[in-house]
Design a protein around this nucleic acid. Structure first.
Lengths: 329, 329
DNA sequence: CTGAAAGCGCTAACAA
DNA sequence: TTGTTAGCGCTTTCAG
């Protein structure tokens, strides 16, 4: 069977298809009785609008979302909250994962453009400030607004929604310092990552402020479990810290595993701290004080800002939004 | 700036737009030199095809994917692998999460129909065999093929890709039995869940076959961490098993947490077994032997079957595909 | 091998 | 308040 279309409803209701269109999309432009009648018929006939046809003429009411990986719970939750917020506002989401690959990221953007999306929310694959792929220029040319998520880069975009990384580092730093450890290892991200560097700066700030004489060691790894595990293992072969601070969830997981390899009892021999929550830790009975970010808030702001950009033509620049984390002990 | 369209390229290449269309979509129908020239120009001008316009006339080359939640790593991986497989075959994916809500599931299906998708892969929200929402009838009427993922229900669909649950239970059962425990607790899913019941049946089969005199207790929870945790806690207040078998990843996590609450040392006082891998366990140094399913395979078959259904008109029924798990010690 | 015309389903612009 | 016309960008059909 073919899909019911506006014209089919029009025939039954004895009106023209444009009236049906209006009754369903902009009911205030149609006489109430007619409107009701049409809506009733549409429902009975099981009408399903055709976004393809709609999007050809006007806005698609669809936004694109791209994240590096959906396996990381942080991004999974962010996506979830973005989709929820968008739906509430009457927008649909097309979701893509770039799998940490530049090529797939480019593909995802191309595909989104093919679907005539009205705007894009993207967490780019690279932590490097100077990562500026071509598609940003294309999107700008086509006036498709882009909201950056979590990772800031120097590329044309209307605004970004970020975490307050310095603050996160600082808060967690205060918490750790208060414990009076002798030696603390910080497992950081890449040296080029602004996110990692900001968190590190916050931590150091807290340490200096406290004027404590704790010995702080820093490892520069990557926001990636494997590398962190390796480097922490190497470190543990030489030294034994009282605590390890992982600068994101992936790193913390790597540090945990490395410590297990060295037969340390987690939370006893070595205490763990993390920026980003490690939800599974509770299942294993390990307490990992952390900085938790309200991911719901994250998604909400990203969507809100993007839609503002879409619906007000001339906004070249909206405010960035910075989400603060809270300490969870 | 407006998007480049076929006509723009046509003007530059001195041909008609239909020739451009052919050069890009069906190059074999165009003289090689012309074809090359057109493709070159298209690239230079930064042409981006418009799926909306394309999908209006012909197939959209897009499939829809719906899973109950993306937070569960099992589904997250499945989605990832589905997207990968689809892209390889030249299809795009629109992804939705139903958040375990019937209403959102219905919405997702409606939205997908609005996007003129060619087919749907869905893991329905309910474990109940008799869950048969209306949209299945609609999809059938419109001849939009549906492939069921993981959860089987009695509704019109072309086929399903499932796990071999009895086999998983059986294999894990053999493994557990071999350990000669005195008392084993099985934390199962809902009494209405075919998946849970099959796994349970497999376990019991292994036990009976071994003719061992292990005491087996069964708790019927839900494929959900919270409830499992509560019920296992209640159980532990009375009895202390040597091992607990969680019938899916969520349940196992709940059981772990419950045991932690009772101050048992994981993997020592109580041994854990799981159907579905608990990837994070290694990070915490707990060994959880499990049944691992090749999720990549899962996605591959779902996509392949769906595309077969899409591309061959008259396939009323394709074979179901059953994926076997392997024991990981 | 290439092109002209028609139309997919919907809505913006103009008319009644 | 409702309808007519035209066109969004592409492809199918039929002709050259």
């Amino acid at each position: 069977m073919k899909k019911i279309k506006l014209a089919d409803i029009a025939k039954v209701a004895n009106v023209s298809s444009i009236t049906v269109s209006r009754a369903l999309s902009t009911p205030e432009k149609v006489k109430p009785e007619t409107c009701e009648k049409i809506q009733k018929i549409a429902k009975e006939m099981g009408y399903i609008p055709n976004f393809m046809a709609k999007g050809l003429k006007s806005r698609s009411q669809t936004i694109g979302v791209i994240v590096p990986t959906i396996i990381n719970p942080f991004f999974a939750s962010a996506v979830k909250s973005i989709i929820r917020s968008a739906n509430k506002t009457g927008y649909n989401c097309l979701f893509f994962s770039s799998d940490e690959s530049q090529e797939m990221e480019q593909n995802a953007v191309n595909t989104l453009m093919s679907y005539n999306i009205d705007g894009i929310i993207i967490a780019v694959i690279s932590e490097d400030e100077h990562y500026t792929p071509d598609y940003f220029a294309t999107l700008k040319k086509l006036s498709i607004p882009v909201v950056l998520l979590d990772r800031h880069i120097e590329a044309p975009h209307v605004c970004g929604v970020y975490l307050d990384n310095v603050d996160s580092g600082y808060k967690l730093g205060k918490e750790v310092i208060s414990k009076q450890y002798q030696r603390v290892l910080i497992a950081s991200g890449s040296a080029n990552s602004k996110v990692a560097n900001s968190r590190l700066a916050g931590l150091k700030m807290a340490a200096e402020e406290a004027n404590s004489n704790v010995q702080i060691d820093v490892i520069k790894a990557d926001f990636n479990t494997e590398l962190a595990k390796e480097l922490v293992e190497q470190y543990l072969a030489e030294l034994k810290p009282d605590a390890i601070i992982g600068l994101n969830n992936q790193i913390t997981l790597g540090a945990l595993e490395a410590s297990v390899q060295h037969n340390y009892r987690l939370g006893t021999d070595i205490h763990f701290y993390s920026i980003d929550e490690i939800k599974t830790a509770t299942h294993f009975g390990i307490a990992i004080p952390c900085i938790r970010h309200d991911v719901e808030e994250f998604g909400y702001h990203a969507v809100t800002q993007l839609i503002r950009a879409i619906e007000t033509e001339d906004c070249d620049k909206l405010s960035d939004i910075i989400i603060r984390g809270t300490v969870i002990k």
